[in-house]
Design a protein around this nucleic acid. Structure first.
Length: 234
DNA sequence: GCATTAACCACAG
DNA sequence: CTGTGGTTAATGC
């Protein structure tokens, strides 16, 4: 039984502010502080669950989170891996009151729960804030389009290369990193089967494009250029 | 037709 | 959970 520590928020002095929150004025920050709270999550804890009522806007202060959804055949699909600082569920929450997907932490994380009423108030009151939120929602949308097209048109090699490059450049900024997910999850992320991913990783290894070992896979991208070529070629 | 790609299954570690 | 081998269905040349 692990205890979650809820801390009263001090948005004003928070150093993990999103661009949007930076646009808030002093009194608005104060308002957000009073109506949000920060929760410490361990790794592999669910933040919210698909089909359950959504209560708050989520802000990932720090940590890695996967957004995932199970389809009609009950297979889990990873929609996106998000690194804090980032807002979650804005699109879903403003429109519906039910979570259309789930979110689970991949690492220990600091998560803020922001009251939806207050969030909406701020959207109306402060246009710079709204604009920044809009930007992040747009980016999200574009990312989806991008992923949709890549997913549809590329072969496994390309999709896997995409994912590896994503972790390397978007998440870790390093060619050497430990994969935060299992092979099975990696398959769920790129819309493939674990067997295919496993085989494909072996191929990359044989061609000395990547190196890896261990249960929690330590990845080392040896030939980034080649990986980019594979990614492009699909 | 034949080759390739990749999913599904089964089984082992 | 992961790796492997066999099977199979779809698609391409």
């Amino acid at each position: 039984m692990q205890e979650q520590i809820i801390t009263k928020n001090q948005c004003k002095i928070c150093d993990e502010k999103s661009c949007a929150v930076s646009a808030l004025k002093e009194d608005e920050l104060e308002l957000m502080s009073r109506n949000s709270s920060q929760v410490h999550f361990q790794e592999e804890e669910m933040i919210f669950k698909q089909n359950s009522p959504a209560s708050h806007i989520i802000f990932i202060k720090q940590g890695l989170v996967k957004e995932h959804m199970s389809g009609p055949n009950k297979k889990d699909q990873i929609l996106k891996i998000v690194k804090g600082p980032a807002f979650l569920r804005v699109a879903s929450k403003l429109k519906y009151n039910i979570n259309s997907y789930s979110a689970t932490t991949l690492t220990e994380s600091k998560i803020c729960f922001i009251d939806i009423g207050v969030f909406k108030d701020l959207l109306f009151k402060n246009s710079s804030f709204s604009y920044e939120v809009l930007i992040s929602v747009c980016e999200d949308g574009l990312y989806c389009f991008d992923k949709f097209v890549n997913q549809t048109q590329k072969h496994i090699h390309g999709r896997l290369a995409d994912a590896l490059l994503f972790f390397s450049s978007e998440i870790y900024n390093d060619s050497h990193f430990t994969l935060p997910i299992t092979i099975t999850e990696l398959a769920d992320l790129i819309g493939s089967s674990r067997e295919s991913v496993s085989r494909c990783l072996q191929t990359f290894k044989k061609e000395e494009i990547i190196g890896f070992n261990g249960q929690k896979i330590c990845m080392n991208i040896l030939d980034k250029t080649k990986l980019q070529i594979i990614s492009k070629a699909g």
